[in-house]
Nucleic acid binder design. Structure first.
Length: 588
RNA sequence: GCGCCCGUAGCUCAACUGGAUAGAGCACCGGCCUUCUAAGCCGGGGGUCGGGGGUUCGAGUCCCUCCGGGCGUACCA
């Protein structure tokens, strides 16, 4: 029996096509699963596609094709319907064959060779290690992890990667924030804590750690710390001038801190970095999100790759100098405006290291590179692809999947998502409140580029109504059935499937057969949410069947047939939930 | 202003990338537990797919144009 009925039917249609119109024999043949059961198991729109080039009536063409379709033991009947669809109705045996395949292939059922072992890199989360991950990062994490699993399932050799922004100003701000809190232990309230420094409690916690580890060795004269700073404007002021002054004040504090601390600054900096990174890594691991590579932005500078990158662009004539800064001529590659890569103060921009990072990715030989970015970064796609083109790399290798922010609602109101203000809900809190399974599932229940309203109160109070339980419940019910049956599960593979003939059973079999196709299309579209919707549908068919029929009956052979079917359902639920990173409880 | 994304049931979202009568879940109404897990099932109401025009056998899906929302438009990361 053929493993792929679609391929088989396509061959039948091809034969009919060749016979009817030889000169159109290479036309594309598309087979779809109709939404409505009465339209059969597969439908083909070939006659309608050919109607125009051949200037013939579609239904008439369909009739000609229908007469030339070779007989097949899998096909019960074919018919013309609607505007000219050719519908295939499969025999019950052909529909039920999938049950045996699921049972024999087990967790491999649905795996495909689409990726053909090619190397793909998926980079995601990549949040600045300046504080705990929040619910917005959680969505990127859940999407990226599910997508990585999905691509691996579809035959890709996946490397998941987290880009650590350990080189920029934000890290300096975090370091100085922690140090100021530390100084508070020894000289309370002598230096006002800047409003644009990191406010969260975790900053004070790190300061306390430094005190325990080093006592007062990191204390410096606070008067020196304020030397040359512009001071802080009134807290109420929100005008541009006041904002600029606050930033200048913070930068001056950082510069003074570096001078005063000398070598100890590096300690403070690396301490806060490793603390935050470790916290982030633990948080993600607990969420079932694992990264193969943690890539340091700083390493791009240390190895000189950023320098070499800019030089290469310069030699190729894509850089010019204006107002003391080096600009990349990205408008030559479709960007809206040119972009600075090196500032007039000699420092590289984030864009410069980003170009270097992508060059590094290409040099590692990935057939495909997928960046998962927050949707607010969509403006960067053009410039990054432009830079790649300028470096004579193929921009089509890079795919950027945008993830809209998850907006958290608490007490019916939008919760602030700013890390610096300290008023955020952490991913950790969300996981503890809602649970990992519901969390992972909820995040991928909608298309990644759609806004997600995450109502914390609802997720907490209506946990039982979360769709993830609906699917897990189906799994648990099958486990419970097997426990009560208490027979040899291995023997189910030999069950007589011909005993399955009611509409519930045939509908379930048809759904199971869709799974491999679903994996391919979900992987191709980078859309793990399709898995979630599929599993909901499959679970619904199961629950409906479960309520309509008894599985364990006096007829032992029939019992085996039915259990074989529901064990196949359980297997596909397992395979699907594994991709989504959701557990499969035996009982609930 | 310009660019990208979005607008589908009261709410949150699907719709096999152009297919047949647009589907689920919440919420609402009415049924089903002395029988394998009621975190379940069965039935019901609910729609001008933001508006208008176009493309074709066929449009929620593609093109144009309005209306409404989000994001971006840094020598920030």
């Amino acid at each position: 029996m053929t493993d792929d009925i679609k391929t088989h039917l396509t061959a039948l249609m091809r034969a009919a096509l060749t016979s009817v119109v030889a000169d159109q024999a290479d036309a594309a043949i598309v087979l779809e699963r109709p939404k409505q059961a009465s339209h059969g198991d597969f439908s083909c729109n070939l006659a309608m596609q050919l109607a125009r080039p051949m200037k013939r009536n579609p239904r008439e063409l369909a009739g000609l094709l229908l007469g030339e379709i070779p007989r097949s033991p899998l096909v019960e009947k074919t018919e013309i319907a609607g505007a000219g669809f050719i519908n295939f109705h499969l025999t019950a045996a052909a529909k039920l064959g999938v049950v045996g395949r699921v049972l024999s292939q087990g967790e491999a059922f649905g795996r495909s060779t689409q990726g053909d072992h090619r190397k793909v890199q998926v980079e995601y989360v990549s949040a600045n290690p300046t504080g705990p991950l929040h619910v917005g990062h959680g969505r990127g994490a859940a999407y990226g992890a599910s997508l990585s699993n999905l691509l691996a399932y579809a035959g890709w050799d996946v490397t998941s990667e987290y880009y650590v922004n350990d080189a920029g100003r934000q890290m300096d701000i975090l370091a100085v924030s922690a140090w100021l809190r530390y100084l508070d232990f020894y000289a309370p309230a002598t230096v006002a804590f800047p409003p644009n420094a990191y406010q969260g409690d975790y900053v004070a916690d790190m300061a306390a750690q430094m005190k325990i580890a080093h006592g007062d060795k990191l204390v410096r004269q606070t008067a020196e710390l304020l030397r040359g700073t512009p001071g802080l404007p009134d807290a109420e002021r929100t005008d541009d001038e006041a904002k600029a002054q606050r930033e200048a004040h913070l930068d001056a504090l950082i510069a003074n801190a570096k001078t005063l601390l000398g070598e100890a600054w590096n300690y403070v900096h690396s301490h806060v970095l490793s603390e935050q990174l470790e916290d982030c890594r633990n948080d993600l691991e607990a969420f079932g999100v694992h990264f193969d590579v943690w890539f340091s932005e700083k390493s791009l500078f240390d190895t000189g790759l950023v320098d070499r990158c800019v030089e290469r662009l310069e030699k190729a004539g894509h850089i010019y100098v204006q107002n003391g800064a080096k600009w990349f001529k990205s408008t030559a590659f479709g960007d809206e405006k040119d972009r600075v890569v090196q500032r007039d103060n000699g420092l590289y921009t984030y864009f410069a290291s980003d170009i270097a990072y992508h060059l590094n990715k290409y040099e590692r030989g990935f057939a495909r590179i997928i960046n998962i970015w927050g949707a607010d970064h969509h403006g960067y796609i053009a410039r990054v692809k432009g830079a790649l083109t300028a470096l004579e790399l193929d921009p089509a290798v890079l795919d950027v999947a945008l993830v809209q922010f998850a907006v958290l609602y608490r007490n019916g109101q939008k919760a602030s998502m700013s890390t610096r203000s300290g008023e955020f809900v952490t991913l950790r809190t969300l996981r503890e409140d809602v649970g990992n399974d519901a969390c992972r599932f909820f995040y991928v229940l909608r298309k990644s580029d759609q806004h997600l309203d995450f109502d914390l109160d609802l997720a907490k109070s209506q946990t039982n109504e979360n769709p993830v339980y609906y699917i897990q419940y189906a799994h648990a019910r099958v486990c419970s059935l097997l426990a009560q049956w208490n027979g040899d599960e291995q023997a189910l593979a030999a069950a007589d499937l011909a005993r399955l003939d009611n509409p519930h059973e045939l509908a379930i079999a048809a759904k199971l057969a869709e799974f491999p196709e679903l994996i391919d299309s979900a992987a191709a579209e980078l859309a793990p949410h399709l898995i979630a919707f599929y599993l909901k549908d499959l679970a619904a068919l199961f629950h409906s069947y479960y309520n309509a029929e008894r599985m364990i009956v006096d007829d032992k052979a029939l019992t085996c047939s039915r259990l074989a079917l529901v064990v196949a359902v359980r297997q596909v639920i397992r395979n699907g939930l594994a991709i989504l990173g959701v557990s499969c409880p035996q009982s609930m």
